[in-house]
């Protein structure tokens, strides 16, 4: 029993990311409204961000900014040895900064395309658009 509990504690946020990701995936596959699909894609991307940030977590560590004296910035001032275990893993945060930016850019482009779709067909419901294409 305690094994199961410890396994749950060790992995539950990975399950949350999977749940979130599947919600996004379902929205992309199952929804007919094009904006809802865009939201689904965004949820999907957010789930991945949650996953990466989870990798970066480290028990008992603080944000990855080296504590330095008021002199500030000059590399000579840090006399004490820096232990890697004191600070969070910075790499996933860097990667996710990139992924967030990419997500924003994709969202902008998707919205622009949605506007273009709306201008063209007068609706954002996929089945209505398809029936309009067929009539044409």
């Amino acid at each position: 029993m305690s094994e199961i509990i410890s396994s749950v504690v060790a992995h539950y946020n990975y399950w949350i990311y999977i749940a979130l990701m599947m919600i996004g995936l379902y929205a992309v596959i199952g929804k007919k409204n094009l904006i809802k699909k865009i939201i689904g894609v965004n949820i999907f991307q957010t789930a991945i961000i949650l996953f990466y940030v989870s990798i970066g977590a480290k028990k008992g560590a603080t944000i990855p900014i080296i504590h330095h004296g008021p002199g500030g910035g000059h590399h000579e001032t840090t006399a004490s040895v820096i232990e890697a275990s004191q600070y969070m893993n910075p790499l996933p945060h860097v990667l996710m900064l990139t992924a967030i930016v990419v997500a924003v850019a994709t969202l902008g482009v998707a919205l622009a395309l949605a506007i273009k779709v709306y201008n063209q067909y007068g609706t954002l419901e996929e089945d209505e658009i398809l029936s309009r294409i067929r009539v044409r």
Binding site: V28, L34, I38, V41, F44, T106, A110, L113, V117, Q120
Partner: peptide, 17 residues
């Protein structure tokens, strides 16, 4: 083309996924 925006938007979904 009449269908280009929809085709591209579908590509956005699949490409991003």
């Amino acid at each position: 083309e009449y269908r280009a925006p929809l085709a591209s938007l579908n590509y956005v979904y699949m490409g991003t996924i």
